[in-house]
C-alpha cells in the first residue's frame, strides 16, 4: 500500500493505492472518492480486532464515531481518496509496536495492525487542557494517519517540551504529560495570553497543530447574527 498527501497543509486529502487484499480502516464519512474494486464494510470494531459495541461507545466518548469503515481492495491497483472533515493537515506515522495517544477526532485512518481504543486521561487534562477527557489510543504495528485543523508539525522530544493547551494532536505513550503555568506566576501566564500549557517530559514523538478550532470560533462567534 502506498499513500500520497495532496494539497498539504491547507486542504489535505489522502490518496491510497491498494493492492488486492489490502485494507484500510477509516473514520466514518472520510471517503471522498474511490475506484470500483473496493468494498466497504462498516462495523463498530477494528478489523480482526475485538470489542464491538462497547469499544464503539467508548470511541464516541472520545469524539470519534461509533462505526468504522473498512475498505478492502478486491482487485489489484485500487485507489481511495479520503479527507478530514475540517480544513487542515494530515500526517502519516509509522508504528512499530507501542502506543500513540491521539486527540479525539484527530484519528483519520489506520492499517489493520493498529488497534483503536479509548483512553481516560484524567480530570486535570479535561479541565485545563481544553481537550476531551477521553483520548484515542492507537496501539500495535502499522501505518497511522492523523488529521487536524491547521498544519501539523512534529518534534522528537527528549527531556522537556512545552505546548500550549489545545495544540496537541498526538504523542507517544513514553511521554509524560502535565498541565502547568506558562510563566512563573499564574497572573503572568494569563496576561501573556498563554494561560495554561502542557508540559511534556520524557522521550518520544509529539505532533502538534498550528491552529485551533476554538480560537477561530471565538473570533467568529461574536460576529455571527443570532437566528
Amino acid at each position: 500500500m502506498r499513500h500520497q498527501m495532496l494539497c498539504q497543509p491547507a486542504a489535505t486529502a489522502l490518496r491510497f493505492e491498494l493492492e488486492q487484499g489490502e485494507s484500510i480502516t477509516c473514520e466514518v464519512g472520510a471517503m471522498i472518492a474511490m475506484t470500483t474494486g473496493l468494498t466497504v464494510e462498516t462495523t463498530s470494531k477494528s478489523r480482526g480486532g475485538s470489542g464491538g459495541i462497547i469499544k464503539g461507545l467508548k470511541r464516541m466518548f472520545s469524539g470519534e464515531s461509533f462505526f468504522l469503515n473498512h475498505f478492502t481492495a478486491q482487485r489489484p491497483d485500487q485507489s481511495l481518496l479520503i479527507g478530514p472533515t475540517l480544513l487542515g493537515d494530515c500526517v502519516h506515522h509509522s508504528m512499530r509496536g507501542g502506543t500513540m495517544i491521539v486527540q479525539g477526532s484527530s484519528w483519520l485512518a489506520s492499517t489493520p495492525g493498529i488497534e483503536i481504543d479509548t483512553a481516560w486521561q484524567g480530570f486535570s487534562s479535561a479541565l485545563f487542557s481544553g481537550k476531551s477527557t477521553f483520548w484515542v489510543k492507537c496501539s500495535g504495528g502499522g501505518e497511522l494517519y492523523l488529521s487536524s485543523y491547521g498544519a501539523i508539525h512534529s518534534i522528537e522530544v527528549d527531556g522537556d517540551y512545552t505546548i500550549d493547551t489545545g495544540h496537541i494532536v498526538a504523542f507517544e505513550d513514553t511521554l509524560e504529560f502535565n498541565i502547568g503555568k506558562a510563566s512563573r506566576s499564574l497572573i503572568g501566564s494569563f496576561l501573556g495570553g498563554e494561560g495554561l500549557v502542557c508540559k511534556f517530559h520524557g522521550q518520544g514523538k509529539l505532533y502538534y497543530q498550528s491552529h485551533t478550532l476554538p480560537s477561530l470560533g471565538a473570533l467568529l462567534g461574536p460576529k455571527l447574527k443570532a437566528k
Binding site: 512499530r96 507501542g98 504495528g141
Partner: peptide, 15 residues
C-alpha cells in the same frame, strides 16, 4: 512487551 529507543532503529523507536 515494551519498547526501545536507539539511534540505529529507523524512526529511533520500536516496540
Amino acid at each position: 512487551q515494551g519498547g526501545v529507543f536507539h539511534a540505529s532503529i529507523p524512526g529511533g523507536r520500536s516496540g
